[in-house]
Design a protein around this nucleic acid. Structure first.
Length: 156
DNA sequence: GCCAACGTTGGC
DNA sequence: GCCAACGTTGGC
């Protein structure tokens, strides 16, 4: 059975798109350096939680498909690697600062659900995506997930 | 490429 | 602990 909560994660399509995730089957969601996003991953995500996969900085931006949290949160290894762009000298293995989860590919939507469509849908008016900028890991309600899937033409 | 929004840093 | 400067996100 799947976990209880739903999420949305943003990825720049040119950096790591849902096609990349489909190819890799799953990936460690490294490089998140925002405390609120980290807290969601570290404290609230559970194995099996469904995740909307959003392409930011794309033309047009929108939700491209569905993914899933796999396993439990663990420290982001890139924070400990001095040669990595996400290296954080303030972090230590005994006191990790940044946490992540593994994200597993579920499905590509038959069509992109654009930001414009999301904005136009009254049932999505409270979606975090539409009310908060710059949060790359954010909660989504079960109803919002269902509405987005419906817009994508995916059966519930 | 522009630039508004806004999270983070660091001086005080 | 305030807040100005700075850097980044992300739509357009």
């Amino acid at each position: 059975m799947t976990g209880g909560r739903c999420w949305l994660i943003k990825s720049e399509a040119e950096v790591y798109s849902i096609d990349d995730l489909a190819r890799d089957a799953s990936t460690a969601w490294t490089g998140v350096r925002n405390y609120e996003a980290r807290n969601h991953m570290r404290d609230e995500m559970s194995d099996g939680d469904l995740v909307l996969y959003y392409h930011s900085n794309a033309s047009p931006p929108g939700v491209a498909g569905l993914a899933r949290v796999r396993g439990a949160p663990y420290p982001d290894p890139t924070q400990f690697d001095p040669s990595d762009p996400y290296f954080d000298p303030r972090a230590s293995t005994v006191d990790p600062r940044w946490w992540l989860v593994d994200i597993e590919f579920v499905e590509m939507f038959p069509r992109l659900v654009t930001l414009q469509e999301l904005r136009a849908e009254p049932r999505l008016r409270d979606m975090v995506l539409l009310n908060r900028m710059r949060l790359s890991v954010q909660p989504v309600t079960n109803e919002e997930l269902a509405v987005v899937k419906h817009l994508a033409g995916v059966g519930a």
